[in-house]
Design a protein around this nucleic acid. Structure first.
Length: 553
RNA sequence: UGGGCCGUCGCCAAGCGGUUAAGGCACCGGGUUUUGAUCCCGGCAUUCGGAGGUUCGAAUCCUCCCGGCCCAGCCA
């Protein structure tokens, strides 16, 4: 994955691994894993973790597993499993092993029995509320449960009967016997197993008890011989428990958990709860809405896997609670698309321009480079005709200062064509501009006009040869940097996040675009043919990102 | 004194006792340009949350203080 000549950014995790390697820890192996719970769609924050885990494995010639953390059957399903696999693959990564925490349910059960036999785990029969009361608070120690000192025999018997399905949800729970007075609440006899009499996607009705994350994750890591278990900062407090389980069970391997800061991106939200709300309240069209920060949404927006990987490299890995500016992500996609996408012309909000000094039916074939810096993109022909379309905001009767486009009586260059002069503005009864009548300077094709300077260049499409298309202009979904801090998500929404233009005029060569094919529409931005709704008969393009614009509008 | 963690340029981020304190983004110039794009060139932290201390020498070590984040699921 990493090219040898691409230096990998230094970060504290790579430093730890370098030290481990130098000390010959783990016999020089590096094994990581990306462990999503299949209870939702992956988003850009997951991409950070994916790039980290798979990137490190690639850099150190190691391995990276994709492991579904499927220990809570009430929240997980197959749809999410398949979507996650597709997203990881689309991002360009290949897992060495595909695993599920549920693969280890038998081993996990046996380990739990072992813990009970050692007197390190017991069956709790208090209610959830009672347990909460006994847990204490952040500043006060907890109190020990009356069930804490049950005999090993009784615990073994009860746990076996929990497994056998003799009890209902909530009647009992298996707990680790650690320290109810610990300053770390995770160590106050955490729950290891709970009763859940529901079917599991993979194990069906086999189990009526399911292991908790803290108990499962460390053991799964150990069984997969993971060397470095990378997770986000909120699990720092869980590390003592991770280590406790592995120490008490004397597993052959003891992976090292290392925590890094999760991604926070300005003008978007990444919490599952908020994303679900956007979908359920129909503020977006679905998980794959091009405005969503999900991988599938970003993909539909037109982002490339390479741009997302580049983004993950640029933001780095630390333990700082960092907020990344949207400009970083946008720069990544512009850099990629600038280099790799062919140029085209499209008019979003057309006004008709009639070149009055051309004969009726006039057509001239003009040759255009598909990329201004790379001849390998080839050339294409575009028909220049008497009637063309230009974008409404490329003409102004009352132009602001330094306006370089078409004005009454003024001249402008038609990109790749002639310089035209606006002679007359035709309006309807309502006063709307319906047509511009212009003349052209025949001496300006491929040449600078003589005796004067014409600064502006405007894109255009033949009114008679162009094709009608729908173009969706997307912008950031929220108007404030941290939408989660608003009173409600609705308050933070950007009402202009999607503006649809159905009567756009695009150059004819765009008619055979395939879904997900990307282009730069000159002077406008980068656009992608919609993955799901674009057809050659009814073209639909999504704006991925605008071009950088240093002209103050 | 509940426990854990974090503070280097507007936003990220290298740096691990001796460097002129990398780099990217953003921003500000200037040049090229038939995309107000791209590209190029230049500018952008005498200072590392603050105060003390150790040291010939501190962003890097120590102490205290200030600010911020996480934790009381039978979620992950």
């Amino acid at each position: 994955m990493n090219k040898p000549d691409t230096p990998v950014a230094s970060n504290f995790i790579r430093n730890i691994i370098d030290d481990d390697l130098a000390a010959n820890k783990n016999d020089g192996r590096v094994v990581t894993r990306f462990p999503p719970e299949p209870n939702g769609y992956l988003h850009i924050g997951h991409a950070k973790s994916i790039c980290l885990n798979f990137g490190i494995a690639a850099q150190y010639n190691g391995q990276c597993n994709l492991r579904f953390d499927d220990t809570n059957p009430v929240k997980e399903n197959e749809e999410f499993v398949n979507a996650i696999k597709a997203d990881v693959e689309w991002l360009g990564f290949e897992w060495d092993n595909l695993k599920h925490a549920s693969d280890y349910f038998d081993e996990l059960y046996n380990f739990a029995v072992e813990l009970i036999k050692q007197g390190k785990a017991y069956v709790e029969s208090s209610s959830a509320e009672e347990m909460r009361e006994m847990r204490g608070t952040l500043t006060e120690p907890g109190t020990e449960s009356p069930y804490r000192n049950r005999s090993v025999e009784e615990n073994l018997d009860l746990f076996a009967r929990m497994k056998a399905g003799e009890f209902d949800d909530g009647e009992h729970v298996l707990r680790a016997k650690i320290d109810m007075a610990s300053g770390n609440i995770n160590m106050r006899d955490p729950t290891l197993y709970r009763i859940r009499k529901v079917d599991h996607v993979r194990t069906g009705k086999t189990w009526s008890i399911y292991p908790m994350y803290d108990y499962t994750h460390c053991l799964s890591d150990a069984m997969e011989n993971i060397t470095h278990s990378l997770c986000t900062l909120e699990f720092e407090d869980h590390r003592p428990l991770y280590d406790w389980v592995l120490d008490e069970l004397k597993t052959p391997a003891h992976p090292q958990q290392i925590e890094f800061a999760r991604l926070s991106l300005e003008y978007t939200i990444l919490s599952k709860r908020n994303l679900i709300q956007l979908v359920e309240d129909k503020h977006v069209t679905g998980w794959d809405d091009p405005r969503m920060p999900t991988i599938t949404g970003i993909r539909r927006r037109g982002y490339t896997p390479a741009a997302i990987r580049d983004f993950c490299d640029r933001i780095g890995i630390t333990k700082n609670d960092a907020w990344i500016e949207m400009a970083v992500l946008e720069t990544c996609i512009r850099d990629d698309l600038n280099e790799h996408s062919p140029r085209r012309m499209a008019v979003i909000d057309p006004i008709k321009v009639v070149i009055t000094d051309l004969p009726d039916g006039y057509t001239e074939t003009l040759s255009f480079a598909n990329h201004p810096q790379n001849e390998a993109f080839g050339r294409r022909d575009i028909a220049f005709t008497k009637e063309i379309m230009i974008d409404a905001d490329d003409f102004s009767e009352n132009p602001p200062p330094k306006y370089q486009r078409l004005v009454p009586g003024g001249e402008v260059r038609l990109r790749g064509s002639y310089v035209i002069k606006c002679e007359e503005v035709i309006k309807n009864d309502a006063g709307d501009i319906v047509e511009l009548r212009c003349t052209h300077d025949p001496a300006t094709l491929g040449k600078k006009p003589e005796g004067r300077k014409v600064k502006g260049v405007v894109h255009w499409v033949s009114a008679t040869e162009g094709v009608t298309a729908e173009v969706r202009l997307y912008d950031r979904l929220f108007n404030i940097e941290n939408p989660a801090s608003a009173n409600t998500l609705e308050d933070a929404l950007n009402p202009q996040s999607m503006v649809i233009h159905k009567q756009c005029c695009i150059e004819a060569s765009l008619a055979d675009a395939k879904p997900e094919e990307r282009f730069q529409f000159e002077r406008l931005g980068y656009f992608v043919a919609d993955r799901f709704e674009h057809t050659n008969a009814t073209p639909v393009f999504n704006r991925t990102v605008t071009l950088r614009d240093t002209w103050a509008k």
